[in-house]
Design a protein around this nucleic acid. Structure first.
Lengths: 137, 137
DNA sequence: CTTGAGCTTCCAGTGACAGGAAGGTTTATT
DNA sequence: AATAAACCTTCCTGTCACTGGAAGCTCAAG
């Protein structure tokens, strides 16, 4: 099937599919006319990539996952290790964002938000000690 | 002072400071020899940028914040609006990551992780309906 | 036969820098 | 005074994972 069919079935834009081919992630057969030709198996693998990317795996991690996907003799422990590492990444990012959120929330909560110029958010960003102590405790 | 002094005081790498100048965020005076020359005020503004970036504001948002920082007649409501929008962004990102985490955690939890090849993570990524229903309920 | 959709490749741009090369300046040591 | 080390400059490239667009094929329909 043509690339647009593969795109619809896998959920990946054609541009992305070509890009994956360019970086050697998933190469397609070619027809006489030069058009790419995707099999059902290709589509399954594209779909797999789509979901793995959506789950936060980098393209390089997807490369590993795909080779495990293709490997009939894989050990599930290897897959699990990858997934657990990614889980840790995600938890780390959540923790970082949560502390950002807290800090910003503190600042926002202390800003009266009217037409006067004095603003604890600006002071907080400036690193004004007095304001920071007031705001962050 | 030279760029490395400004770097140490503001916490931004020299490369970043030059980049900020290149994109018109904060331009520095020049000495006879072509070296950049930073005042204490410049350092305060660099420091401000550093904290704003750390709090998750994009460079363009930092541009707005910096002009508000410089504006003696700013209205704190304007700053607050920016900060609240950013707060929403952050909450959105946390929500997305949290749902990622859930999905991945489900997959990981159901993988026995031994030397056998059958693996709910791989099946889940492949979109295998049977496995997905088992794993995600 | 023409029109329009679909396919191809290639080039440029995104955000926010980081790394490194080539070369000028300043400072410290010998 | 010579030299070496450290610091500064600009410019170019690379990162990550695409996205947009241009120029030029091919294909299906009317």
């Amino acid at each position: 099937m043509n690339i647009s069919q593969a795109s619809m079935k896998s959920g990946l834009p054609p541009k992305t599919i070509r890009y994956y081919e360019e970086i050697g992630l998933l190469k397609a057969d070619r027809r006489m006319n030069g058009y790419r030709d995707y099999s059902d198996r290709d589509v399954r693998r594209l779909h797999f990539l789509h979901r793995a990317r959506d789950l936060g795996f980098s393209v390089d991690e997807c490369r590993q996952l795909l080779s495990l996907y293709d490997d009939e003799n894989r050990e599930s422990a290897e897959v699990k290790a990858l997934a657990e590492a990614k889980l840790q990444d995600i938890e780390q990012r959540i923790a970082e964002l949560t502390s950002l959120k807290k800090a910003l929330h503190h600042l926002v909560a202390h800003c009266h938000g009217d037409n006067r110029p004095d603003c604890p958010i600006i002071e907080g960003l400036a690193g004004n000690q007095v304001f920071c102590e007031k705001v962050f405790g």
